[in-house]
Nucleic acid binder design. Structure first.
Lengths: 225, 225
DNA sequence: TTATAAAGATAGTAATGCTATCATTCTAAA
DNA sequence: TTTAGAATGATAGCATTACTATCTTTATAA
């Protein structure tokens, strides 16, 4: 059985839907490779075009600029992760178990989802860790937000917040705690790799330590009277 | 009594020490204004030079590029904050009280420190909130780290980590919790302003709510058996 | 078969991110 | 007081970036 997974994206994110054409899919596939390899600052549509074997103008027919493409990639990732969370928590009743599984999904290395042939989720995860916050840390965040560009991130936070409330309906900061889990899963991962003096995970660099830290943080907060 | 505060900066951060000359101080002063006004992406040395009334080449004599200048500004901020923390916690013995004061310093609006006439700490604080993570979220983070460019941030984290251990010497993740406090103080502030659906602080947008959230998070974690 | 959408090919332009050079001014030591 | 050195000013230039425009060719579907 072969399945294809397609995520419906906000149309304001692109000029022409990249999922609809071969070139579009290549743009997504190769932009993930290139951003991961050289970082977002060094990434240009020119280089992307050369890698794909098309022209700069060709890329501009799909995305207004490289920042929009970054928002697209991160938005896609959050949507995919919400779907992934739903699958992993299917038939689970205990909210504590659900929350633990979410922390695992956020903090551990992601496996490539074969249902999305042109997207390597593992690499995309690393991009979201290192570049994700740049999607909204801009001067035009409010306009972008009005266009709903960050909805997938918000939806995921809302879902996690709801599970936090299932654990303890009295807890006062479910949404803030949800985004703390997400951001810190990524920051601890980044710090562990590149600025290890900032963490307590020393040299073994085991992602499971991040899971322990986050679990301790989250459950001591919400279990508290 | 008039006092001047001067922070000794890592010499790798600049080509010519901006604190030593009038032009240098203007570069710092106006770059803070401009980055805050237009955001770091739109900020260029050309525009900065025009604002100051000097030339682009003049700025390049002080800083290799705008990214180095951003690291300089954030490094300066973390050094100043460590000093500020030391002042505020002077003569305090109770580590819980110290930690609470640190959370206040991180999460509440900063007041301009008159001992640094060309630097507006309040605006710089806002820059660190919105642009600070871009200082280390780059492809050359490891080289920059080898040059000790992030030492002030690490030092502050270490200091906070030590106070956490004073509260509870058994707590396993003092450094990770320290950077969580710092990053989350800033992220919650940014989200509250620009992506309020992500937080639980709704429309009143009161920074004291961030303090409550962080205090709850931190103290429930470290008080736990 | 014929529109029409997508892609390819090419050109061009303003802004960005630098580097280089030479002249001028200012300061501090001889 | 002269003079050397440092800092600044003024100007030029160049490769790359970030686009926009136009025209042709190639698929595709009605």
């Amino acid at each position: 059985m072969e399945l294809e997974l397609k995520i419906k994206m906000n149309e304001k994110l692109f000029l022409r839907d990249p999922e609809q054409t071969e070139l579009g899919k290549k743009i997504i596939q190769y932009s993930i490779q290139l951003i991961h390899k050289n970082g977002f600052e060094a990434f240009t549509f020119k280089k992307l075009a050369e890698n794909i074997g098309t022209t700069e103008a060709g890329i501009y027919r799909y995305f207004e600029n490289k920042h929009r493409l970054l928002i697209y990639l991160t938005a896609w990732y959050w949507s995919w992760l919400e779907y992934s969370v739903a699958i992993h928590n299917n038939n689970i009743d205990d909210p504590t178990v659900k929350l633990k599984r979410i922390i695992n999904l956020l903090a551990l290395t992601v496996e490539d989802d074969l249902k999305t042939s042109h997207i390597n989720e593992n690499i995309l995860h690393q991009i979201v860790i290192a570049e994700g916050s740049k999607a909204y840390l801009t001067n035009h965040v409010s306009e972008d937000n009005k266009d709903q560009l960050f909805k997938p991130y918000k939806d995921l936070c809302a879902k996690i917040g709801d599970i936090i409330l299932e654990c303890n309906s009295q807890y006062k900061y479910p949404k803030s705690l949800a985004n703390t889990i997400i951001e810190m899963a990524h920051f601890q991962n980044y710090f562990m790799k590149y600025l290890p003096a900032l963490t307590d995970f020393g040299n073994n660099k085991d992602e499971l330590e991040i899971v322990s830290f986050l679990s301790d943080l989250v459950f001591s907060s919400i279990k508290q009277k």
